[in-house]
Design a protein around this nucleic acid. Sequence first.
DNA 1: CATAGGATCGCCT
DNA 2: GGCGATCCTATGT
Length: 213
Amino acid sequence: MNETILHDTTNLLGSDFFERKDVCKIATELLGKYLISKIGNQIVGGIITETEAYAGIHDKASHAYAGRRTARTEVMYQAPGTVYVYLCYGIHSLLNVVSNEVGIPDAILIRAIYPVFGNEIIMTRRTKKGINNSTSCVGPGNVTKALGIDRNQNGIMINTSEIYIGKNDQLIPESFIQTGKRIGVDYAEEDAALPYRFYVNHNDLKKLDLSSH
DNA sequence: CATAGGATCGCCT
DNA sequence: GGCGATCCTATGT
């Protein structure tokens, strides 16, 4: 894969992908897709390997629980495919993509990717020593740091500028997909236990033929 | 205006 | 496994 994907719209996800009601299905289907950033004219891309679903106003873990509308959460009510980036713990930018229809604030958090290209750029952005291909983009704060994403991208639409999500002919086998409860949402009472986290081990990912594109 | 706490990370022991 | 960093957001007075 190279940057030609950014100029061939047939390779990018259509807006209908995020314009669906089942946020868990979308979160699952995002596994294996390409996430690409072109920020500061630097292109970095990888395969999405971990996501979490946040199910709008009925989900106590969601920022939009009970229909909360604030300056921060307003973008969650915008069109499917809108990027929602917020600051967590005062330090980390966390990347989400809004789904469902306008006015229904579902979102998917991107928690990890497997880097495919732009590795030298990633290493200049990730200064921690000892990281490797399998760890440089694991954890939602690390994904955004590697991709150069922060709140400057909050509110933009995917596949129009800076952040792109591409199709992948190489699908993740269902047997590779693991499920669990979401990280860091213990405050969400009964919703804290919902199996809304989806991930594939990078070791399993490497068993696939990633050279077919 | 004041305050508590967070969809995390990395360093320390 | 513990905890400090760091600052914005949401809420309450």
